[in-house]
Amino acid sequence: MMLQAIDLALVIEKLILIVIVISASLVIAMYTTFAERKVAAILQDRRGPNRAGPFGLLQPLADGLKLFFKEEIIPNFSSKFLFILGPALAMMTAMMTSAVIPWGDKIEFFGRSVALQITDVNIGVLYVFGVVSLGVYGIMIGSWASNNKFSLLGGLRAASQIISYELAMGISMIALLMVTGTLSLKEMVIQQQQTHWNIINQPLGFLIFLICAFAECNRTPFDLPEAENELIGGYHTEYSSMKLGFYLFAEYINMFISSVIMATLFFGGYDMPFVNEALLSPNIAALVGIAALMGKVICFIFLFMWVRWTIPRFRYDQLMHLGWRILIPLALFNMLATGGVILYFGK
């Protein structure tokens, strides 16, 4: 149990990084809820929230405060522990993904070189995939513990939807891994910095990944688990107060994280296009990188919202049809074609 001095410094450094990353993603998710309402309003020729603070910027705080002060209702016949575990798991799995994402290059700080990534594990992509596949537990446990038919239906929909789309997502990711030859997200970004973005190699793979990301985040047009006009509220029908807030919030964190993942996998991560980072001083380069990543993420989040307010919800059989009979064969074909090209041109 001896922690060396250097280890202690590393632990503190990582702890600070974790706190920053988690609080940043919480704040961004908070403002994503605000952005969602604003974008919806703008796309529908309305004004959106503009009362709380200048331009309505304090609206997410007001929303959160309202949720905290709402009455807490736990149904009588539900399993109380599981009822509380549901939203907690949803929130936790939503935030766990951020651990392997490279937010930027190294930053020089009091003579220490700090990598802007919590941990660069050699299985980064698989870690993301694993955590995403666990995300469904929050919804399933919560929906079952509610002891409500509609909640259960929502939970079952969520489970089958996420499992179905995970397959296509995984296969499209395999094609990408065949091109990059690494599982570490950091190395992928460095590769893309040196050559070109992966979207050029894998346009079809990106399309499949994007569609699956929509389904994994339970976003419209795949928001069947919470389809309000047929399942009341889906899996969170029985939830109130901040537990409901956690579920809603987890969705926005998921959206943010999947935007970051897509930007990192296919759009060069923190790579600013047409700028040679090696010429800049390390700190400036890191800041430019973070700004580039955030810019890409904002574009993706806008895409998520734009699609939400354009495309109506799928029917459940259409969802399954798309997942199993179109996306999986397409992803398999993409994998085969990628393998063929790599084999033919010898990479």
Binding site: L43, D45, R46, R47, N50, W306, V307, T310, I311
Partner: peptide
């Protein structure tokens, strides 16, 4: 058709808002 629909919603960003504060 999805792309067409997205263009229609996008064009609404530049429309005048009829709401009065």
């Amino acid at each position: 058709s999805i792309f067409k629909g997205m263009l229609i919603t996008f064009s609404h960003i530049f429309k005048k808002k009829p709401t009065i504060n």
